[in-house]
């Protein structure tokens, strides 16, 4: 069983800075987010979300292999702080929402102006180039203050009832 290949989402300061600008520019969406609320973003290739790879990946991580990198977005005093983290499986991700984005879509987002990134993420979610997992119920997410952000991404209405 081999270790999971890290995704292409780079951890360099420039990329982190790019995400920080993305969130700073949309600060209004996160103003009501409870302190400590946390979202994660990983490259889907790294997550192993492609069928058949996930279980092996989790096993590798539990066996101590290095996990893929995860960008964490954490709420602090009405703003989002972008941090770096290691993804160690769903159960230990410590996030309320996890985005898993295809490499190509991630590359596209990095090439965009900060104002356009959330729009691109929304589009990627709709086209299947990105997916997301939620680890809290709808009401818990609402209570934590996620509604505006989820709404911006179209997630509140996405999925059921199609």
């Amino acid at each position: 069983m081999g270790a999971i290949e890290p995704g292409v989402e780079p951890l360099d300061a420039a990329a982190a800075g790019h995400w920080q600008v993305v969130f700073d520019r949309s600060a209004g969406l996160f103003a009501g987010l409870a302190d400590g609320s946390r979202m994660g973003l990983v490259a889907r290739s790294a997550l192993g979300a492609v069928g058949g790879r996930h279980a092996a990946g989790v096993a590798a991580m539990l066996a101590g292999a290095a996990g893929p990198r995860m960008r964490a977005f954490e709420a602090r005093e009405g703003a989002i702080e972008v941090r770096e983290s290691t993804y160690s499986g769903y159960a230990r991700a410590g996030v309320e929402i996890l985005f898993a984005v295809d490499d190509a879509a991630l590359a596209r987002m990095r090439g965009l102006a900060a104002d356009s990134v959330l729009g691109a993420l929304k589009l990627a979610l709709r086209t299947g180039d990105a997916m997301f997992y939620v680890f809290r119920t709808k009401y818990e997410l609402q209570d934590a203050g996620y509604e505006d952000f989820l709404d911006t991404l179209g997630l509140a209405f996405l999925g059921a009832c199609r």
């Binding site: 996930h54 769903y90 159960a91 997301f132 939620v134 680890f135 119920t137």
Partner: peptide, 13 residues
Amino acid sequence: PSIVPQTLPHFRP
């Protein structure tokens, strides 16, 4: 069958 988290918050972990 496996632990794959929800994509819709209406559903349970």
